[in-house]
Design a protein around this nucleic acid. Structure first.
Lengths: 233, 233
DNA sequence: GTATTTTTGTGCTGTAAAACATAAAAACAA
DNA sequence: TTGTTTTTATGTTTTACAGCACAAAAATAC
């Protein structure tokens, strides 16, 4: 019996929501002008300060977008899940990256040159509108987050992060376990607190029977409680 | 000698950088389909949670975009100066406003319906690209700010705000006085701190001969020092 | 002009959360 | 296996800053 081959990655045609907006010519051009890159867990995809050459599309895996803070304390700004475009902000703003991107697990990424991307955008209002909308949504999230991260207390911030992870990745088949496993450090970066406080508060939540924790697996037991903690103290 | 008439506001044709990108048809249409509104100092232009109907363009005056925080402590997210478009994020994201807009001084605003705005965007890639870029730049600022506001200490945050105000509004003819007069409360909202701490830290900066303060007039004496405080402690 | 509200300025107190210090447990390597 | 690094866990100390309280000054209203 023949051994199963290593999975061939599907093409960009099959995964990108954007594809349907492209003209036939653009589709043909894109098919011939993108590359696939593989990143291992914890590998850096791009770094703060670098010039943005390409637009990226996460085919599979998970990627965190983070900003280096003071004294090594980095902050996770947003998380990319498959299939999403990322890295286009710096290309469109014509600025260096203000954030870094790191693979949270082994990831496959489609790479399209920024020039091609911009030309598509300028040729095709559907494409432009798609990204206008994506940026508008992300800006709204960023504005909301900055007020939340600064004004809420630790409990509220951690509750918000857990709910965010649940909304982003959903539950596993048991309808309780959040479908992403982060280190305590990543959870802290996402919630803007020290690792110690993330660990501590996680334990407190577990003692209060709001969640259960088994290593990096987190089950949400009492989602309503968590939402209350998110909104009030 | 005839007394000078109250200044007639100039039309949207003369102030909008966007105008040049519009097609002749779009220009004609826009000329007939915008309104002018006047807001008094401290008047609310729109509020968090409202549905976004229009896109706004500040013809003259100053407008602050803020987010209501916990316990009445609001945070200034960005400041609009003439001539800039604002309020389009919510229209493009098709979401309610996540922020409020308040006139910081008497302001004149051009109002264009969101529908007209979106149709221009969809018809005209130049227009779309203009706003894609504006959103991309703003998102970069928002990402940077959220890390700064959470991780920097009070001195660093106030220094950043003063430098931001100077970059945004420039100096007066003396090459030192920041060309915008904010209340201590607004300065605090911008720097994410309490009013007391804004006042206190301003006094400390003055004692250290980094700035001089005369009511709401702030002169930057030692810009290098301020930049150092912004970047390090 | 006087009264009232808003803004500015300071001092004091309490506390949330960082910083530091270890140590156990888990993951990884030789 | 044993050693080494990373991650998780928890207790203790320190401090930056919010949260009052109160007063002077300025702006606004009457």
């Amino acid at each position: 019996m023949a051994r199963r081959k290593v999975a061939e990655p599907v093409g960009i045609e099959n995964v990108s929501k954007l594809w349907e907006y492209l003209t036939p010519e653009q589709r043909a051009y894109l098919s011939r002008n993108y590359t696939i890159r593989h990143y291992r867990k914890n590998e850096i995809i791009y770094s703060e300060g670098e010039t943005a050459q390409n637009v990226l599309c996460l085919a599979n895996g998970k990627v965190k977008i983070l900003r280096d803070g003071i004294g090594g304390r980095s902050q996770i700004v947003r998380i990319i899940k498959a299939v999403e475009y990322f890295g286009y902000r710096a290309v469109l703003a014509e600025e260096p990256y203000v954030t870094s991107a790191v693979a949270m697990e082994n990831s496959t990424i489609y790479v399209v040159s920024g020039g091609v991307f911009v030309s598509f955008l300028k040729q095709n209002t559907e494409v432009a509108y798609y990204f206008v909308k994506a940026l508008a949504v992300d800006l709204g999230i960023a504005d909301s987050r900055s007020a939340n991260l600064t004004q809420k207390h630790i409990r509220g911030r951690l509750a918000e992060s857990l709910l965010f992870l649940k909304d982003t990745y959903g539950y596993e088949s048991d309808d309780a376990t959040i479908s992403v496993y982060l280190s305590r450090e990543d959870l802290a970066s996402l919630s803007n607190m020290t690792t110690s406080n993330a660990i501590r508060t996680l334990t407190v939540f577990a003692n209060e029977k709001i969640i259960t924790v088994d290593g990096r697996k987190i089950k949400i037991i009492d989602e309503d409680r968590l939402k209350k903690i998110n909104n009030f103290g």
